[in-house]
Design a protein around this nucleic acid. Structure first.
Length: 417
DNA sequence: TCTGGGGTCCTAGGACCC
DNA sequence: TCTGGGGTCCTAGGACCC
């Protein structure tokens, strides 16, 4: 029987911040989404106050501050780097590991001895090497490992091997909506049929579940029964779409500022595109007003396709042309975004019969790789496109951000002894 | 005043082909 | 008045994940 362990960092973003600022220990802490909009990570103390995932900051600010809590802007450079350190530590414990998200990894523990004590060792080593607390759930399928992890989070040891438990009563204690793969819509549907906990779902009729939840739901069902259907993915697969979008710090009406924003997003996406050695042949551009505001609303999207390329200036031209198609004067816009798709390997790009002689692919490639390596070495936007603007008044707000402790020389913490 | 961003997969239905 | 059957491809929309 296969054996999976799910290692999940506790309150990951908050824990990263605490590593570099011990004053954050023991008090309610939340980390905010872009624009300091919503709470996307909460310390246990903040959870206890009743602050839910995704709560808008303006709604929980008073409660948080009244309880001596602290809010921080998100610092993705820090979290990304800390995530790498956790993964590096985990790799010492098994050769088979899947990086599932920024704060989670599935490990294969096939053939290992006493799993509970091994997991405890993993846990204490990660804490020692990185300062990050993790919880570990162990089970014969990924879905059950997720369940085990959820329960492990609640006990002191932070580790749970499902094989040591009474499955029926344990699954009965898990709400159906807490199962991996069951979102709030499916949970509501299942509840309507009287299915409220994981044991009831496990014992459902296959045909019924397939009809209501497609073969994806059926897979979940089988996994709950202990039949492994979702394999470990050891190699990260390349992306099939790359998007970039942002909400603005304040409403934008001027088309020139919107053009700057899409140009900026396209150049970010272009970097990611080249990183995975792909070329793109399709793009979608969208924009919208603020749906939370009582004001005239407008949202639209348009797609275009073109000969495969990974040359940012070309992508910027397409993006700006698309935006001009859907822009309407007189609205206060809150957000724009772009999405690249239709990928092919960059080294197998079809030559364009109608290309202008000036489009010299080799020199375009050289320019892009020079630009990418400068920005990688000296930081994002060291060199950027004129069309992305300089003022960037549409830029997002991040007033509570901590330093990039581990990724910028100038922001490294100083220890005075 | 103030409400995130980046992905994946599946299915139904329409267009199109022979 | 009567109007096939089988297949593929693409897209939009809906579900999910972190």
């Amino acid at each position: 029987m296969p054996c999976f362990a799910l290692v999940d960092c506790n309150n990951f973003y908050v824990s990263c911040e605490r590593v570099f600022n011990p004053k954050l220990e023991g008090i309610p802490v939340i980390v905010l989404s872009n624009n300091d909009g919503c709470a996307v990570a909460r310390s246990n103390e903040a959870k206890k106050l009743g602050i839910k995932m995704g709560t808008p900051f303006f709604q929980c600010k008073d409660l948080l501050y009244k309880n001596n809590g602290k809010a921080l802007s998100s610092n993705y450079a820090l979290y990304g780097d800390m995530s790498c350190r956790v993964i590096q530590t985990l790799q010492q414990f098994t050769p088979e590991l899947e990086i599932y998200s920024i704060d989670e990894a599935f490990l294969s523990l096939n053939g290992f001895g006493n799993l509970t004590s091994y997991a405890k060792k993993i846990r204490s080593t990660v804490k020692q090497h990185t300062g990050i607390p993790v919880s570990i759930g162990i089970a014969p399928t990924k879905t059950l490992a997720k369940v085990a992890n959820k329960i492990a989070k609640k006990n002191i040891a932070g580790v749970l091997d499902l094989a040591t438990e009474n499955m029926d009563s344990l699954l009965e204690s898990v709400e159906v909506g807490d199962i991996w793969g069951v979102g709030y819509r499916y949970a509501a549907m299942l509840n309507k049929y009287g299915i409220t906990n994981a044991r009831q779902l496990r014992d459902c009729d296959d045909t019924f579940i397939k009809k209501k939840m497609t073969i994806v739901g059926l897979r979940t069902l089988h996994e709950l029964r202990g039949e492994s259907c979702i394999a470990l993915e050891l190699m990260p697969s390349s992306k099939k779409a790359i998007g970039s979008s942002r909400s603005f710090g304040k409403p934008v009406t001027d088309i020139n500022e919107l053009l700057e924003s899409v140009s900026d997003y396209v150049s970010r996406a272009g970097e990611k595109l080249r990183q995975q050695n792909s070329a793109t042949s399709a793009m979608q551009v969208y924009l919208s007003t603020n749906p939370f505001k009582n004001q005239p609303q407008y949202a639209n999207a348009v797609s275009c396709s073109f000969p495969a390329t990974s040359y940012t200036p070309e992508l910027i031209r397409y993006a700006q042309a698309c935006l001009k198609q859907i822009y309407r004067k007189g609205y206060a816009y809150k957000k724009t975004g772009i999405l690249l798709s239709g990928f092919s390997p960059a080294n197998a790009v079809q030559l364009n019969l109608f290309a202008e002689p000036s489009q010299d692919r080799a020199s375009q490639k050289a320019i892009m790789s020079a630009l990418d390596s400068i920005n990688q070495k000296y930081g994002t936007n060291t060199v950027s496109y004129a069309s992305s603007g300089i003022s960037k008044i549409w830029k997002m707000l991040q007033s509570l951000k901590t330093p990039c402790f581990t990724t910028r020389w100038s922001e490294i913490p100083v220890v005075r002894a």
